[in-house]
């Protein structure tokens, strides 16, 4: 564990807490893409298949449970909670994410560390996470003004993978024979997809203005 990876995990946890706060405090999920939440639930379930077979550390197991439970709870809220579900932007959240799932799985069948069920699903979860934010970014562009908590949620979600890239660079330099090509390349693609969001987020912070993504 290094400082970059801890910062990444804490930033990721923070993004989830901010989203839970937004939904709980405002009893609303307006501006949140349910499709992105569903993709993240798939990402965590596909990535943590080793949850019950390999024990790495209490921290590792605890965080995996938090990520799986929170993503499923948010999807449940957006689908079935009588109050929250009414504020879902159904007509704006129309990204056809089936292709993202299909393409990620097809790529995982081709490019993986080992051709085993666990490793193929791990690679699938890495590729899917790289593109999982797309429905959310499209929704932000369509829904005009973005409320503060939603903007902070997306910002922390994008920042966490940037910390992971620093972690991989650090491990590559300090651990002999450390390579993490699949996660590294996907992580760069994932973080790059946030580039324009980060730009407009910075502008809104500098001008102390409302965050607005151009349509």
């Amino acid at each position: 564990m290094n400082i970059f990876r801890l910062a990444g995990d804490m930033t990721h946890l923070l993004s989830i807490l901010v989203l839970l706060l937004k939904i709980y405090a405002t009893k609303s999920c307006s501006g949140i893409s349910r499709k992105t939440q569903e993709l993240y639930a798939i990402v965590f379930m596909a990535r943590y298949l080793d949850l019950f077979t390999d024990f790495i550390s209490v921290y590792n197991t605890f965080m995996k449970l938090i990520f799986i439970a929170s993503s499923l709870a948010i999807v449940w809220c957006m689908r079935f909670h009588p109050v929250v579900r009414r504020s879902y932007d159904r007509e704006l959240d129309t990204f056809r994410y089936f292709f993202l799932v299909g393409a990620s799985f097809a790529l995982a069948l081709v490019w993986h560390d080992k051709f085993t069920l666990q490793e193929v699903f791990w690679a699938f979860s890495i590729y899917l996470e790289a593109v999982a934010i797309l429905p959310q970014l499209v929704l932000l562009q369509r829904s005009g003004n973005v409320d503060n908590l939603t903007g902070q949620y997306v910002f922390f979600l994008g920042a966490y993978r940037a910390f992971y890239i620093l972690n991989w660079i650090y491990r590559y330099m300090t651990e002999p024979r450390f390579t993490r090509w699949i996660a590294g390349i996907s992580g760069v693609v994932q973080t790059a997809l946030y580039a324009d969001f980060f730009y407009y987020y910075f502008i809104s912070w500098k001008n102390n203005s409302k965050l607005k993504l151009p349509a």
Binding site: D9, F55, I56, S57, N60, F67, D113, K114
Partner: peptide, 10 residues
């Protein structure tokens, strides 16, 4: 902790 396939990260 460490895992043989290196998947020790979240």
């Amino acid at each position: 902790g460490y895992k043989e396939n290196g998947k020790d990260e979240l």
